[in-house]
Design a protein around this nucleic acid. Structure first.
Length: 505
RNA sequence: GGCGCAUUCGUCUAGCGGCCUAGGACGCAUCCCUCUCAAGGAUGAGAUCACGGGUUCGAAUCCCGUAUGCGCUACCA
């Protein structure tokens, strides 16, 4: 669907979340980078669910992840729901592959069965720490005797499979985002590849899948960098070609708060932003700027722009802090300056329905109400920063006059007193009654008439004239454009509200 | 503790040896526009480029230390 604007090798990338909760900003930014890189190069973006930890898997989490990606428009070319040539894309349905590879590694001498109990592992770890050694496993089962092995089996212990890390030499991870990392092999643990329940660990599962699914670029969080050398060694043991590695930095909490982005730092599950009235394209645009830039000034990008311009060379190696303020600004920018009135209105419909201002069926098919709703939405399009604010800004236009509640003193504003405000309301009422319909419904025409009226009344400025009707029509001191409100409400309702206010004075 | 990665305005960033007396954006301040609120326009404050040594005619840019931050150190991912 997307044509690459270059002659790069098409990249196959993946987003491989574990369904242990709802993804937030940080997780999704990694998915976004992977998506963009695949699309930029004309390759494929794959979704794979890594549910190899049976204890931590949360019911409904995979569905939530999929819904989040779909809302954001990060559609996957292969994965749950859409299938693909390397299905299944859920790790718990691929156990045989991992078990087969684990067996192969043992047979080739690159891995071994470990019969150690959890209790022993914990004791070993503690004693190693006491000796100021790195905590972890002492590789005992590498050299276990046949008798000990038989004894363990007789006890009914199901072994794990551990990788046999080369004890000498160094391993270097070549990374496209951060500096290459080199470690002494001896500092690496003989990691468990296959657990005693027959499920693989991440180390084995992701690697087998990335190979089988022909991934070219592994874009993942920087927390994986320390274990990347282990992954390199496993690739080498298997004799498989390695993908490119891109360890992208984490997103941190806003200033004043330590650590990785957390709920406390303002990170909400993705779909919460939908409810708050954020636009997916604005969210994506904000997110992509967290750790990536195109040049020294451009920062508004449509999805098509991003696909065209995204390049991994622009990925920052440094963790970025999340800024709710800038994200809000970005959303407002999209609403005020990118969306058309029609598009904005369409997106407002569900919010208006939820607030009870229109009927649920009207949110789907507004019919002849569309003209009115569009006129109303147009009034506040450049005022709001989220769709969620919309109902609160214009609810008074949907409600009957009697429901307006405000203190009579609000009608006065900067006018000297209630009598002055009453005189203004009367004058406007009579003026509106005589105005021809085509003038009434023409914003500029209406404005000119009122402006002239203000001169006629000898008012110092237009503001004095506009104030009382503003409050009379909206019930508030901050409102959308006066003429716009008058047109949206219609002449009859407008005059009714003016007279209703008149009686309060 | 060990290992690894990172380090430019409060924040996101531009910068890949001379164009930098460091540019843009958010936020902040002032002013303009104006029917209120926004939006918009203009201006400004804000970074001795973490610190200390090198390399070089010349360093934010290259190298080495130090400090700080973050991550990993599970039969979690």
């Amino acid at each position: 669907m997307t044509t690459p604007s270059n002659n790069l090798t098409p990249a196959r990338t993946r987003y491989a979340p574990s369904p242990t909760g709802n993804p937030h900003i940080g997780n999704i930014r990694t998915a976004l980078f992977a998506y963009l890189w695949a699309k930029h190069t004309g390759g494929q973006f794959v979704l794979r669910i890594e549910d190899t930890d049976r204890k931590r898997t949360v019911e409904g989490s995979a569905e939530y992840i999929e819904a989040s990606l779909r809302w954001l428009g990060l559609d996957w070319d292969e994965g749950p729901g859409v299938g693909g040539p390397y299905a299944p894309y859920v790790q718990s349905e691929r156990l045989e592959f991992y078990q087969e590879i684990a067996k192969q590694l043992v047979e080739q001498g690159h891995a071994y069965y470990c019969y150690c109990t959890p209790e022993r592992l914990e004791a070993v770890s503690k004693s190693r720490q006491a000796q100021h050694l790195p905590p972890g496993y002492d590789r005992r089962c590498r050299s276990i005797s046949e008798a000990e092995k038989q004894a363990a089996i007789a006890e009914g212990i199901t072994p794990t499979v551990r990788f046999k890390v080369p004890l000498e030499g160094k391993t270097t991870v070549v990374d496209l985002v951060v500096k290459d990392a080199t470690v002494e092999n001896a500092t690496i643990q003989d990691a468990v590849l296959l657990k005693s329940d027959g499920y693989p660990t991440y180390h084995l599962a992701h690697l087998v899948d990335d190979h089988m699914m022909k991934m070219t670029d592994v874009i993942r969080a920087q927390e994986w960098l320390p274990s990347a050398p282990l992954h390199v060694m496993i690739y080498q043991a298997l004799g498989w070609e390695m993908p490119n590695w891109l360890h992208v930095p984490d997103i941190m909490n806003p200033p004043g708060q330590q650590g990785k982005l957390s709920k406390r730092g303002g990170a909400k599950p993705i779909l919460d932003y939908q409810e708050l009235g954020y636009l997916p394209e604005a969210l994506l645009n904000y997110l992509v700027l967290l750790g990536w830039s195109y040049d020294d000034k451009t920062e508004i990008f449509s999805k098509a722009d991003l696909i065209e311009k995204f390049d991994i060379s622009g990925i920052q190696p440094t963790p970025a802090r999340f800024s709710p303020e800038k994200m809000l600004w970005m959303n407002g920018h999209y609403i005020n300056h990118v969306l058309t009135v029609e598009d904005f209105t369409r997106r407002c419909l569900p919010f208006l329905a939820q607030a009870g201002l229109i009927r649920p069926e009207e949110a789907v098919e507004p019919g002849d109400r569309l003209a009115f709703i569009t006129a109303v939405c147009a009034l506040i399009k450049d005022k709001v920063k989220t769709l969620g604010e919309v109902p609160g800004e214009i609810d008074f236009l949907f409600r009957p006059t009697e429901m307006l509640e405000y203190p009579a003193t609000d009608l006065i504003g900067k006018n000297p007193d209630g009598a002055a405000a009453a005189r203004i309301l009367d004058a406007i009422s009579s003026h509106l009654e005589t105005v021809p319909a085509e003038v009434y419904n023409d914003r500029d025409g209406l404005y000119k008439g009122l402006d002239a009226l203000s001169t006629q009344l000898g008012l110092a400025n237009r503001g004095l004239l506009f104030w009382p009707p503003r409050v009379a029509l909206s019930g508030r001191t901050k409102s959308p454009d006066l003429m716009g409100m008058m047109i949206a409400l219609g002449r009859e309702e407008t005059i009714k509200r003016l007279q209703h206010a008149r009686q309060m004075l």
